[in-house]
Design a binder for these strands. Structure first.
Lengths: 333, 333
DNA sequence: CATCGTTGGTACAACGTGGTAAAAATTCCT
DNA sequence: AGGAATTTTTACCACGTTGTACCAACGATG
C-alpha cells in the first residue's frame, strides 16, 4: 500500500505537504496541489485510517450493542443506525449479547476508548451497578427504557404510556379479560410495559389477575406461542392479549390460530415494535410503533455531540414519539 | 488511558517486558510477570488495538457488506457471521448497499486493506468489471450466487438446483400453472433461480409461459404483494407461485388472502431463505432452507485462511447444503 | 578459567499520520 | 532596495505497540 511518503517522493514534496493536501489545508500552491493529486491517483493512495486515528486519538468506530440481529426490530433499527452513523463518518461495529447480562457486561468491558469513540447500547438485563463499574470514561447512549436512574444519555419512547395506550385500545374495543405476554424480572422494559398495562386496567376499573400475566424467557416467536398455549389452557381464557413485542405476538397469533380461534373475534392481539412483518401477517398486527428513524438519528446525534464537544453537558434523557398502529388483529378487516 | 509505559514504570521493568507479558512470551521471570500483572490491573491497562494493528499490519476488522439489515435473511445471516467472526478475534463492520450497484461499488472502493483485513460481500447488482477494478489486493469472500465466472472465493448453495427442487415440489403436488415472482435482470441470483424454475418445468414437460414470470424491483413484502395482485388479474390465474425469497412470498400470501383465496387449495406458495418467520406465518411457508450457519462458518473460515496463510491458493467455490422445508403453504395442515 | 548456550531483560526503531514550530519563499509596503 | 508581513514548505516528533538486535547474568562444559 502506498503511503504519504510514497506520494511525496513521487510529487517531489514533503510528506507533510501531501498530508496538507489530503486534509484540505488552504495554503498549498495550486501547482503543488495538482502534482500531489496526480501522484496520489497514480499510486492509488488511500489514507491509513489506523495510523490517522492513532495520531488523532480517535478511532472512527462506534459500537452498536444489541441482543440479536436476527430479531427484526433490531435488524431494522440497526440498519437505520448504520445509515445515520455514516453521515457522521462513523463506521459501526455490531456486537450481540443475546440479552444476557454476562455478555452485556463483557461486551461493555471489552469496548474501551481505544476501540470505539462511543457506544450505542440496547441493554436487556444490565443492572445499575454494572454501569458505574463498566461505563467509566466511555461515551454511551442507551436505547430502550430502563428502570434505573442513571447518569447516562438515553433515547427511548415512553414505554409506560405506550403500553397503557395499547391496553386502553383493547379496553376501548370492549375487551375485559386482557392478558399480557412477556413478563420478565430481568428485563427493564418488561417492568415498564407491565406498569402501563396495570395503569390501563386500573383506569378502567378492571381487576388485575395474576394468571393473565405470562412470563417469557426470551422474546422470540416460540416463547409467544408457548405463552399463548398456556393462556388457552386456563379455565376461562382471555379475550385479548398484549404482547411485549411483535415476535411474541406472532407466536401467540399462530398458537391461537392453531387451536381454531378467530382473531380478533375470539381473541384480540396487540404487539409492540411495528416490525415490517406486522403489516403483512394474517391477520395484520395492531402494534405500538416507535419512531425508529427518530431513535436512530437522535442516538447518533447525541453520541456525536457527546464525543465531539469539548465541554461536558448533563446526561440527556430524550423521549421519541410513538403511535398505535391499529390493524386487523384487534379490529378485523 | 494507561499505556505499556505506565505499566512498565509502575512495575519497574521496560515497556517491552510488559509487552512480552501481555503477549504470553515464555521467558519472563515469574516474579516480574507477577509484578507486571499487578501493575496492569492496578492502572487498568488495556492494549491500544489501533497501535497494535498499526505495528502488526492488520486491522482486526472485517467488513460485512449486505443489501439491508432489515431484510430478515440478512439480519439472521449477519448475526451468525458476527458470532463466527468473534471466534477468529475479528470484529465485524457492517455496511449496507440497498442492493444498488453504485453503493456496492463505492463501499468496495472504500474498504482498503487499511480498514479491514477482509470483506464478506453479498452482492446484488455488481458486475464482472467492478470486481477486477475494485477488488484488487483485498481479500473478498462472496456470498450468494453470481452468474459471472470470477477468481474470487465464493460460498453459496446451488441456486439452480434449489429453485428446481422448489418447483419440482409444486409439480409433485399436482400444480401445473406455476408462476414465479422476483425476476430481475440486475440480480445475479434471480437468473439462477429462474433457470432452476425453467429446468423443473421442462423436466415435467410443462409450458413456459412468459406471463407467469413476474419481475420484482426489490425483494420486499410490498413487491411480492404487488406481483401477486398482477398474477391474480390474469385471465387464468396460476395455481402455484414460487417466490425468489421469503419476503416476496409473505407479500404474495397476504395479497392472495386479501382476495379471498385459500392457500394452498387455490394457490400454493413457496419461498426461499427459510427466515424464522416462515415457520410461524399463517399458513406457514414452504421454503428453501439454505444452511445459514454453515454459510457463515464457511465464509469466515475461508476468509481467515485466505488472510492468514502466507502462500496463495486458488479461489475456492464452496457449495453449502440446503433443504426444502415443506409447510402449510403447499400441503395444508 | 575461558567459553558457550540458555534465559531474562533492555534500547531502539519503525508502522503512517498530523501537530508544532521553524525555515524558506513570496508578496507587499515604504 | 530593504524590511516586514504573509504564504508555503519542511523537519521533527509523538501517538502505542512490537520486532530486532543486543546486553547481562547464569550455570554448564571443556
Amino acid at each position: 500500500m502506498a503511503t504519504l511518503k510514497d506520494v511525496a517522493s513521487l510529487a517531489g514534496v514533503s510528506a507533510k505537504t501531501v498530508s496538507n493536501v489530503v486534509n484540505g489545508y488552504a495554503f498549498v500552491k495550486p501547482d503543488n496541489r495538482r502534482r500531489v493529486l496526480e501522484a496520489m491517483s497514480a499510486v492509488g493512495y488511500r489514507p491509513n485510517i489506523g495510523a490517522r486515528n492513532l495520531r488523532r486519538g480517535r478511532t472512527g468506530f462506534i459500537a452498536l450493542v444489541v441482543p440479536e440481529l436476527s430479531i427484526p426490530y433490531f435488524g431494522e433499527l440497526s440498519g437505520l443506525i448504520i445509515t445515520a452513523a455514516q453521515e457522521r463518518d462513523w463506521n459501526v461495529l455490531i456486537e450481540q449479547t443475546q440479552g444476557e447480562r454476562d455478555r452485556e457486561r463483557s461486551t461493555l468491558a471489552a469496548l474501551g476508548p481505544h476501540i470505539v469513540d462511543g457506544t450505542i447500547l440496547s441493554p436487556e438485563a444490565l443492572q445499575t451497578g454494572d454501569f458505574t463499574e463498566l461505563a467509566q470514561g466511555i461515551s454511551i447512549v442507551m436505547l430502550g427504557e430502563h428502570k434505573v436512574d442513571l447518569d447516562i444519555d438515553h433515547v427511548a419512547i415512553d414505554n409506560v404510556l405506550a403500553a397503557q395506550t395499547a391496553v386502553a385500545h383493547l379496553i376501548g374495543i370492549g375487551r375485559r379479560r386482557i392478558a399480557v405476554i412477556g413478563q420478565n424480572p430481568h428485563r427493564g422494559t418488561a417492568a415498564l410495559r407491565l406498569e402501563g398495562y396495570r395503569k390501563a386496567l386500573a383506569l378502567a376499573g378492571l381487576p388485575q389477575l395474576s394468571e393473565l400475566v405470562v412470563p417469557a424467557q426470551t422474546y422470540h416467536r416460540r416463547d409467544g406461542a408457548e405463552a399463548m398455549a398456556q393462556l388457552l389452557s386456563l379455565p376461562e381464557r382471555p379475550d385479548a392479549v398484549f404482547c411485549f413485542n411483535d415476535l411474541l405476538a406472532f407466536g401467540a397469533l399462530r398458537a391461537a390460530a392453531d387451536r381454531g380461534l378467530r382473531i380478533p373475534e375470539d381473541i384480540a392481539i396487540v404487539g409492540f415494535d411495528n416490525t415490517e412483518e406486522s403489516g403483512y401477517s394474517l391477520p395484520s398486527l395492531t402494534t405500538i410503533a416507535p419512531n425508529k428513524l427518530s431513535i436512530a438519528r437522535t442516538a447518533i446525534d447525541l453520541l456525536h455531540r457527546r464525543v465531539s464537544s469539548a465541554e461536558q453537558f448533563p446526561p440527556q434523557d430524550i423521549q421519541t414519539t410513538f403511535s398505535l398502529e391499529v390493524r386487523e388483529s384487534t379490529v378485523g378487516r
